[in-house]
Design a protein around this nucleic acid. Structure first.
Lengths: 217, 217
DNA sequence: GCAGCTTTGTGAATGTGCGCACATGCGCAT
DNA sequence: ATGCGCATGTGCGCACATTCACAAAGCTGC
């Protein structure tokens, strides 16, 4: 389920605030979802709650981490040292959450050697060496659209088995390679869709899909 | 539908390659989806195809633009001039696709005045003035998590009615305000989930949801 | 004009996610 | 020890998305 990471982040925050136990309703409130959905999601992991009491935060964190495969770090390699690649490498949130940046590569020699977020940019030809020596499974494509397919091909050849694609193109990859796409312009276009259909007052956009909610204050 | 932006991008590419007509099957191939789904999606806009021939690319582009509300530009304002805010402002893809950056604001005086992507960073107190003078409907939250709720509140008070949130927190907004969330770490966690459940060979992750596909080469 | 090929548009079946509502089970107070 | 309250876990129905399969419809060549 795509909501487990959200629960996990909230539970970690609660644990930092020394909250030991939480009810499905409390977690649902914080996550902005339905309480029944929380219980269904958590029951999928097994019956780790106590009836009449709630869920033990620390134990739930451990179980979700286990389910998501976050018991160890997953180093990532970023292809493309342009605006986005630099921002991703410099964004501390990845390393904090278990995804240290093992390397940043670019095809342009001019960009090789500069240091971003504590990582030196290397040439894309070094990709296989980085992936194999650091045992990287996840590659991030942060190139211009025209270079994205080549970047993906190189990642696959180097041994990556998952790709997070920020380029606005559909990547063609062998079976077994997992691709997730984040298209920033698409998100804005979806907002403009709702803006355009906006009625004078009081009507909100329901259930677009997993995302995009209008919550009450 | 969340797929219309994808179709739109592909159709614009095809138009640039002087392709005048396209079949649902051809479009489905390029978009990485089912042909029947393409036809259902397009029929939702009205019957704009010609049986036995296909769809006229230019006309379809016009209709999808109209449906998505992309007949005019939607200026956006970015709150937060950190790593991500800078990358978003410097990323040319927004302006190209109809979302010019009307302004970048930050709460830190130290960041005010610097120029990013041709836009000068202004103080967050100028937000109402920017939003009203440029008639901005869409605000982008690119602040640290702790500042995100305040940023959202300010955007709403300034008059924005849609928010694209990059901070890993659940925003609390009045009814009628549309929020979409992009959490980069969540995307990586979903990939690690599939990596962790990976079986030795030949099994791929099916139907996570709208996203994340393993396409054959 | 008409037959045949091609592709759209759509009814029906299937699958999936969601949320209500309730039974189950645990802890606590008396 | 026993009953009561409370929160979990889950069966069921609903609504929506997806896909199949086919009928309607246009273009082409004769």
């Amino acid at each position: 389920m795509a909501r487990l990471p959200v629960y996990l982040r909230i539970l970690i925050e609660q644990a930092n605030d020394n909250v030991e136990s939480i009810s499905s309703e409390g977690l649902a409130e914080l996550a902005g979802v339905n309480a029944a959905k929380v219980r269904k999601d958590l029951s999928y992991l097994g019956s780790y709650g106590t009836r009449g009491v709630g869920y033990e935060v620390a134990f739930l964190v451990y179980q979700i981490r286990r389910e998501l495969g976050l018991t160890h770090d997953w180093p990532v390699v970023i292809v493309g040292a342009g605006n986005l690649g630099q921002a991703l490498a410099g964004y501390g949130g990845f390393g904090e959450r278990g995804f240290p940046v093992a390397g940043v590569v670019d095809i342009e020699q001019a960009k090789v050697g500069s240091v971003i977020g504590g990582v030196r940019v290397r040439h894309i030809d070094d990709l296989p060496q980085i992936v194999q020596s650091r045992r990287v499974s996840i590659g991030v494509v942060a190139t211009p659209p025209a270079a994205a397919q080549d970047a993906a091909d190189r990642l696959v050849r180097a041994g990556c088995t998952s790709i997070l694609n920020f380029a606005p193109v559909v990547l063609n990859v062998p079976i077994g390679i997992i691709v997730r796409k984040v298209d920033l312009a698409v998100e804005l276009q979806i907002l403009s869709y709702y803006e355009q259909r906006r009625t004078p007052v009081g009507l909100q956009a329901f259930g677009s899909n997993d995302n995009g909610r209008g919550a009450s204050a």
